[in-house]
C-alpha cells in the first residue's frame, strides 16, 4: 500500500501548490491521476517518490512511514520507487550512453549490471547499436524507452509515471504502457500514473482519480 496522507507541498511555503491531499494506491494496483496541467499532480508524484519534501503530511510505503526525502531518505526506501518523467531529454544525463543510463542505478549500488541491462534493453525494445549511443543521437521515443528501463533496473515495488507518454506518438505510447504492464504482471508492482489524457489513463489503469478543486477526489 502506498499512502499519501494530508500532503501539503509546493515551492513557496506561503502558496503551496497542493494542500491537504490524500491518495492511496493499493498493493499491485494501478491508479491513474487525472488533472489539468499546473494543478500540482506532478508535485504530488514527486512527493510520492520521495523526491520532494512536503511542508506537511506523511507518506507511508507498505506500512512503513517515509523517513526522509531525496538524499535523506534511506536508500532502500528511495529505490522502492521507479520514476519516469515527461521529458526524456531532461531526464537523461547527456553524457551517458543509453547502456550507462540503464546501468546507473546498479552502478550506484556497486552491483553487477551487464546481464540486467541486456534483459531490460530487450524488454523495452532497444536493440542493435542503440545502447551505445548518447541521448542526442536517439529520438524522444527511444530515449524514453531507456528512461523506463532505468526505472525498472532495481525492480521497484512502485512505479511513478509522471506524464510518461505526453511527448510520444501513439505506437510508442502503447509499447511503453505494454512494458509497464508486463513488468507489473511479473512482479506485482503498484503504479501511480499521472497524466491529462483521460482516454489513455482509463484504458491503462484499474482506477482513475480526478483532480478536483482541492486535490484528487479519491473515493477508494
Amino acid at each position: 500500500m502506498l499512502e499519501l496522507l494530508s500532503v501539503t507541498a509546493g515551492y513557496d511555503r506561503r502558496a503551496p501548490v497542493l494542500s491537504d491531499v490524500t491518495l492511496t494506491v493499493e498493493p499491485g494496483a494501478a491508479v491513474g491521476l487525472l488533472g489539468p496541467s499546473g494543478c500540482g499532480k506532478s508535485t504530488l508524484a514527486r512527493v510520492a517518490a520521495l523526491l520532494h519534501e512536503p511542508y506537511a503530511g506523511r507518506v507511508v510505503i507498505d506500512g512503513e512511514p517515509a523517513r526522509g526525502w531525496r538524499h535523506r531518505a534511506p536508500r532502500a526506501q528511495r529505490t522502492a520507487f521507479g520514476v519516469v518523467f515527461q521529458q526524456p531529454r531532461l531526464s537523461a544525463d547527456p553524457r551517458l550512453s543509453l547502456a550507462d543510463l540503464i546501468a546507473e542505478p546498479l552502478r550506484a549500488g556497486r552491483l553487477e549490471h551487464t546481464a540486467r541491462v541486456r534483459e531490460l534493453a530487450d524488454a523495452v525494445g532497444l536493440g542493435g547499436d542503440l545502447l551505445g549511443r548518447r541521448p542526442h543521437e536517439v529520438s524522444d521515443g527511444q530515449l524514453q524507452r531507456a528512461c523506463l528501463a532505468r526505472a525498472l533496473t532495481l525492480r521497484p515495488r512502485w512505479l511513478i509515471c509522471d506524464e510518461m507518454t505526453a511527448m510520444l506518438d501513439a505506437s510508442t505510447t502503447a509499447a511503453l504502457v505494454g512494458v509497464v504492464e508486463e513488468y507489473r504482471r511479473e512482479t506485482g508492482a503498484g503504479l501511480l500514473a499521472v497524466g491529462h489524457d483521460r482516454v489513455l489513463l482509463e484504458r491503462w489503469c484499474g482506477r482513475t482519480v480526478e483532480w478536483g478543486e482541492r486535490g484528487p477526489a479519491d473515493d477508494a
Partner: peptide, 22 residues
C-alpha cells in the same frame, strides 16, 4: 533541479555520487 538528478536519487545514488558523476 533536472529530472535526471531526481532519477539518480531515486536510483539510490549518494550525494557524493550525484555530485561527482552528474
Amino acid at each position: 533541479s533536472r529530472p535526471y538528478v531526481d532519477a539518480a536519487i531515486s536510483g539510490g545514488a549518494s550525494r557524493r555520487r550525484v555530485t561527482v558523476r552528474h
